[in-house]
Amino acid sequence: MIKTPLCELLDIEFPILQGGMAWISDAQLAAAVSNAGGLGIISSMNADENWLRQEIQTAKSLTTKPFGVNVMLMNPHVDKIAQVLIDEKVPVVTTGAGNPGKLMKLWIDAGIKVIPVVPSSGLARYSERAGATAVIAEGGESGGHVGDLATMPLVPQVCDAVSIPVIAAGGIGDGRGIAAALMLGAVGVQLGTRFLVASETNIHENYKDKIIKAKDIDTTLSGRSLGHPVRCLKTTFAKEFLKAENDPLTPKDTLEEFGRGALRIAAQEGDSKKGCFMAGQIAGLIHEKESVNEIIIKLVKETETALNGGIQWVK
């Protein structure tokens, strides 16, 4: 059994969060993770408030356990989304792509636990001061939008910078990774890529197959020049995008246009010529399609084995 203070704090059985992935983390996935003892998280991506309300209500019909919602702060509907979270009494909100600032106060006053995803110890300190319950220190090994620092240096520095609980993310795909994160000072982990292949994940089968086939070298960073780098699989689309990005004659608008809709196409249509398949560097470690419950049970067992095994090196 793996228990940390995060379990009590978030009322969950295991300190494992499932990352909010745009076009992927829906009510079914989030509810499955929560039912398995972790914390499932719905991604509200760029969706509007009506879509989100529906997803939250669907999740509530599928689980009685707590779940969270990830808010992308660049979402044009963010103010209405913020209110839906309060109306629906969502227990946990994670935030990404920006500084939650004023919204945080609103949520905290409504009793929502706010857990910002941070790419630096400065933003972690700022989040703590603003009333965050915990922070997710996410390294650039993760899939999707990433920061510069890798998980190994980021997590202990964030742990030293704040006194609130730290959740590690980025590059964690099995129990060894979880054990390592706990050793770095984290009291929980967030995994995204590992859940991509779960049977409850509603994405195109091609996407899952690509993750299963992926090797350690099969992800790349695109969009760095646009200021928001995205880690994804090196598909035809990603290679074409990188070629255009590296050509100084490509206007930024053309590049933005190139990427528009690519996440949805990957998740729903599985088209590797037009879709951007977000995935973390850990994709190469994932070899099996399993249910969420099987994944979580395995993760916990592996973590126990890794942590118990560590003692052998203490002489």
Binding site: G122, L123, Y126
Partner: peptide
């Protein structure tokens, strides 16, 4: 950048 700005403002 935005991360520098956070550090600096703090």
């Amino acid at each position: 950048d935005s991360l520098d700005t956070v550090e600096l403002v703090m």
